[in-house]
């Protein structure tokens, strides 16, 4: 599972740039907490980027600033995954948001310098094999902070639920 030689980098056709301190209320507004994951995914960024959910395409990347995902433990990472976000790179990730990213299978990594290196609309490449992000427009490459193997395999395996299911500890709805 952790053998990553020969892996192709992930390519995002479009980068969406969000700023510093993007909080979980922006990704999953309070009034949607009790809605279905599908309805929640329709509410992402409705207060700071109305219309984003219609514009985002499968595999797009989010580039965030400092303390991305600050706020509550609500499943904001699941909403981003359900919106089709291919990966997320931020200057710094909030610890709780990072946990949820691991556990819901959203590829979210820290990449110092990323908010300067990308403009909105750029493409982005991410190589987990080399722990590197690249901007094809400028040719600039940045180091991505590696995630410990145990967490990376949960993240890439789709999160913690499939794991518990395999062990017979939970049963998910069909």
């Amino acid at each position: 599972m952790n053998d990553r030689r020969n892996e192709q980098p992930l390519l995002a056709k479009k980068v969406w740039k969000l700023g510093d301190n993007i909080n979980t209320d922006l990704m999953l507004p309070g009034p949607y907490l009790y809605r279905t994951p599908e309805e929640q995914a329709r509410a992402v960024f409705m207060n700071n980027r109305p219309g984003w959910v219609d514009a985002v395409q499968q595999g797009d990347a989010i580039v965030g600033g400092y303390n991305y995902g600050m706020g509550s433990s609500r499943p904001a990472a699941r909403s981003l995954r359900n919106c089709g976000v291919g990966f997320l790179l931020a200057e710094a990730l909030n610890g709780l948001f990072f946990r949820n990213s691991v556990n819901y299978g959203l590829l979210a990594f820290e990449c110092p310098g990323v908010s300067k290196a990308f403009e909105e609309g750029d493409q982005a490449e991410l190589s987990i094999e080399r722990w590197e992000a690249r901007n094809p427009r400028t040719g600039q490459t940045l180091a991505v902070t590696p995630v410990p193997d145990m967490l990376l395999s949960i993240m890439r395996g789709g999160g913690v639920l499939p794991l518990l299911e395999q062990q017979g500890l939970i049963r998910r709805k069909a």
């Binding site: 433990s73 610890g95 556990n103 819901y104 410990p148 999160g159 639920l161 518990l164 062990q167 500890l169």
Partner: peptide, 22 residues
């Protein structure tokens, strides 16, 4: 520590949790 919903399932079913130490 506040954790996510999946962490709670993990803790309730296995008695364990993981933390990246800061």
């Amino acid at each position: 520590r506040g954790v996510g919903g999946p962490d709670m399932l993990y803790a309730v079913t296995t008695g364990k949790a993981w933390f990246k130490v800061g």
